[in-house]
Design a protein around this nucleic acid. Structure first.
Length: 430
RNA sequence: GUGGGUGUAGCUCAGCUGGCAGAGCACUGGGUUGUGGCCCCAGGGGUCGAGGGUUCAAAUCCCUUCACUCACCCCA
């Protein structure tokens, strides 16, 4: 009986992991430019951490977490997101005492037990970044700038949506106003929205049901309810973005699903991913550190969905695994044994070398070399063994122009000699 | 958790109202005793997702089940 991977969990095969690596490298580069350092976090935390950070009544905490009881009866959970852990670590190691501002990024697997679909898995990966310690608009803008730079560097065509969710001073008033408005439209709202009305009225704004959209079209706007400090903050964030020509759309219906968000909130939306089209989401969470037992330190951050981003990159280009510089073709057992050592020497000299089995025919091996896209082929047959010289061919040249290379040369000299094969001035009449 | 779609070769998929399990690509060997790509010939590969039922006969019809997938929900 075959054993398959667990539902919602999957393997990343080389074709995809190559794209993955490229994206990760770019993230590290972009984040470093803005002064972020990596924090490597555990995958398991106490359940209580997420319950308190994300919100007891969110879907994530209520029905999507992989929670289990450890042998000592404590309740542990596979992390469903990264921000809570960053803040736990921030408090635990008193980072606020060491420096006034911490810029941290992390990457790794997250776990949510949802029904899998395109762009949504039970184990998925996020790259996240957090800035703890500053709440001025410049910081919000800087974080968005960094995101913009990152997506631009990857040549991805995405749209950034921005909104302000207000804070503890103004949001409650808005929530009540929205609830009242929702009550008045009760008859036309869908069943889901009836539930939202009770649990989280803000979510009425982003229902996809056409009827609900229409009903909520002239609902009170959050922007009209912002208190003066929040309004001012948001205005200045936008001013910085304009100053740097960052394209973004103001989306007053943008609502985030985690309870801790306030003020500046944003999403990065991509085309061509189906319904799971948010590749990045984030926002400010000023009360969260305090709420988790730390000092009153403001914070803002985002998380990028790696799988979704990789899917995007794959539709735009396809990376191939690296082609070997040299493909060694041994003919027979004696040649194979020599080729084995030769391959190792050249690899240690820095060349990418592929080696076939000496039991296969010349034609088959040449075919394989062509398939892999090898630049040069070195043939090691009876003749070559006697002469102590390998026959080298440049696979990119159409004419058959083999060169004999001395097998006793040290690796660097041999690599040099092989490279020279293609620059030989011998009659080349392509 | 709720709906829809799909399960046949390594991959993409044909296979009608039941009648010998198929194609393309990939892989292997050959056409040229030692020179790839194009072309030609040949070959290996299958529990037709699983279990049960109907039938002389099931990939095909019926039931059950599992998996995958898309959407809702939610989110990255």
């Amino acid at each position: 009986m075959k054993i398959a991977a667990v539902r919602g969990f999957r393997d990343i095969l080389p074709e995809e992991s190559a794209v993955w690596q490229r994206m990760e490298t770019q993230a590290r580069a972009s984040f470093a430019a803005y002064g972020f350092s990596e924090i490597i976090l555990p995958v398991i935390e106490k359940t209580e951490l997420f319950a308190r950070a994300i919100g007891e009544t969110t879907d994530i905490v209520e029905k999507e977490m992989y929670t289990f009881t450890d042998r000592d009866e404590s309740s542990l959970t596979l992390r469903p997101e990264g921000t809570a852990s960053v803040i736990r670590a921030y408090i635990e190691h008193s980072l606020s005492h060491r420096e006034p501002v911490s810029k941290l990024f992390y990457l790794g697997p997250m776990f949510r037990r949802e029904r899998p679909q395109k762009g949504r898995y039970r184990q998925f990966h996020q790259i996240g970044a957090e800035i703890l310690g500053r709440d001025d608009p410049l910081i919000d803008a800087e974080l968005l700038l960094m995101l913009n730079d990152f997506f631009t560097a990857l040549r991805l065509d995405v749209a950034i949506d921005v909104n302000s969710l207000g804070d503890a001073a103004c949001r409650p008033r808005y929530r009540e106003s929205l609830r009242a408005f929702g009550e008045s439209k009760l008859a036309v709202l869908c069943e889901n929205c009836h539930a939202r009305l009770q649990r989280n009225p803000l979510r009425l704004l982003d229902c996809k049901e056409p009827g609900c959209r229409q009903a909520m079209a002239d609902a009170p706007a959050l922007t009209d309810f912002l208190c003066d400090p929040c309004r001012d903050h948001f205005t200045r964030v936008q001013a910085y973005l304009h100053q740097e020509n960052v394209a973004f759309a103001l989306n007053p219906r943008l609502v985030r699903g985690l309870d801790y968000y306030c003020r500046t909130s944003f999403e990065v939306i991509a085309q061509g991913l189906g319904s799971q089209n948010a590749v990045c989401g984030g926002g400010r969470y000023d009360g969260l550190v305090e709420q988790l037992g730390g000092p009153a330190v403001p914070g803002i951050g985002f998380a990028i969905g790696v799988e979704r981003l990789v899917m995007l990159l794959q539709t735009q280009e396809h990376d191939l695994s690296p082609a070997p510089d040299l493909f060694i073709v041994p003919l027979g057992e004696a040649a194979e044994s020599q080729a084995f050592s030769l391959a190792r020497r050249l690899r240690q000299g820095g060349a990418r070398v592929e080696l076939e089995s000496g039991s296969r025919g010349l034609k088959a091996q040449m075919r394989r070399a062509g398939k892999l896209g090898a630049r040069y082929v070195l043939i090691l047959g009876e003749n070559e063994l006697v002469a102590g010289k390998g026959t080298v061919r440049d696979m990119q040249s159409k004419s058959d122009r083999p060169m004999a290379i001395d097998l006793t040369l040290p690796a660097p000299a041999m690599i040099e000699a092989i490279r020279n094969v293609s620059s030989q001035p011998s009659a080349d009449k392509d």
